[in-house]
Amino acid sequence: MIPRASRICLILTAFLLGFIARHLLDQLPLSHQASTPSTSSLHSNDLTFNADTPSSNSNSNSNSNPKSNSSNPERVNAAFVILLQDKDLHNMRKTMRMLESTFNHRYGYPYVFLNNVPFTEHFKTHIRAMTTSDVKFGVVPEEHWSYPAHINQTRAALARKEMEARNVAYGESESYRHMCRYESGFIFHHELVQDYDYYWRVEPGVSFSCDLDFDPFLIMKTKKLKYGFTIALPEFVNTIPTLWENVRQFMKSHPEHISKRNSLEWISYDKGETYNNCHFWSNFEILDLSFFRSKAYTDFFNLLDQAGGFFYERWGDAPVHSIAAALMLQRREIRFFNEIGYRHEMYEHCPESPSLQLKCACDPKDNVDWAQFSCLRRFLET
């Protein structure tokens, strides 16, 4: 047994050594002290949690709110605009998660959701949970989602049956035709969209694969661009058999609306005699809304609407928007957003440059840009 006096000496010695060690640690540089991991350093460094990167264990409401973050750049007067139905809820939530994490958590642009019937409270609650940005929900006016007086509905129904028999894409769908007509001529004027200068069209189920360190809306504004796209493809010929003859009628009736520095060469191999079916894939598009609210575009849409091709055939909003942009805008007002990785259904734009690939999570082998049927190469060369 250690004598009592010895035990006291040992205790005092241990205390003294601990005091000396603590004093020496205090004299070390701060950088040496910080090398010892702590709970806070594991969260801030090893797991890369920070103000710009949402936690994988929380929803987007935990992100820093751009509206209260003075370090965020000034936003353009713009919004994401989405036309969808309640059944699209979960696909939309997945898309919003990607859009927020790759871009919008830094900028806080608002969302406008439109439906031809009122959204349920369940839909609204689950959409709001995906973002800290403002979210608005609206209903399409009935007169914009119904047959105009000049349309023969019997003829339209027969056309749908005939196109269904020929396996034309969406040939049988009545609602798809209302959607295409609405996107072609009315969505720019909806009361919830009317206050904005630009919009970015988003659809449920699309994916965004690249982190954006710039604001596409600001690019549009500062460079005075009117139309932005990521994918250019040919339209299904059997959906638009008489579209071009109506376009030619417009060009003849309204030469004042045709830009002298247009992109006609992109959409026609023979100086406007025929249409080569090239169009921007409008499920992604960033627009200067002033163009689509202009007299030139309004005259164009009204002529097409009177022709009835949205119902007697199956004219899509993609060729309508694209032809209008190609004819009435200057070539320099249209921009290919190569930096935005984007996928819709089977087609994907994946940036191929090494520098952009460092910001993306997509395989360049899946890039549709240089496929034989793609219209992008022709656009870039004209």
Rank of each mutant, 00 (worst) to 15 (best):
M92V: 03
S207R: 07
A21E: 08
F284D: 01
N116H: 15
L42D: 11
I82G: 03
L192V: 04
H321A: 00
F123V: 11
I2D: 13
I11Y: 14
I8H: 13
V76R: 02
F292V: 09
N91R: 12
E100Q: 09
H105C: 07
I11G: 13
F337V: 00
Q194D: 14
K223E: 15
P29W: 05
F284Y: 06
P141R: 03
F373Y: 15
K295S: 14
H254I: 01
N63L: 06
Q27K: 13
G316S: 13
G108S: 04
R378K: 15
S62C: 09
K226H: 14
A318F: 10
A371P: 06
I267K: 11
F284W: 03
R248L: 02
A78Y: 00
S207D: 07
L264Y: 04
L376G: 05
G108V: 02
S70R: 15
Y176E: 10
P319L: 05
H344A: 06
P110T: 02
F337L: 02
P351K: 04
N167Y: 08
K136M: 12
E333I: 03
A149F: 14
K260V: 01
H254L: 05
M96H: 09
L233V: 11
E74C: 09
K67A: 12
Q153R: 10
I151D: 02
E256S: 00
I219D: 15
N104I: 03
S40G: 08
E174D: 10
N238Y: 09
F119S: 08
C278D: 12
K260H: 01
Y176N: 09
A361M: 14
Y182G: 04
E381Y: 11
Y176L: 04
E172L: 10
R332P: 09
R7L: 08
N302G: 06
T154L: 08
T382I: 03
C210I: 00
M346Y: 12
K359N: 06
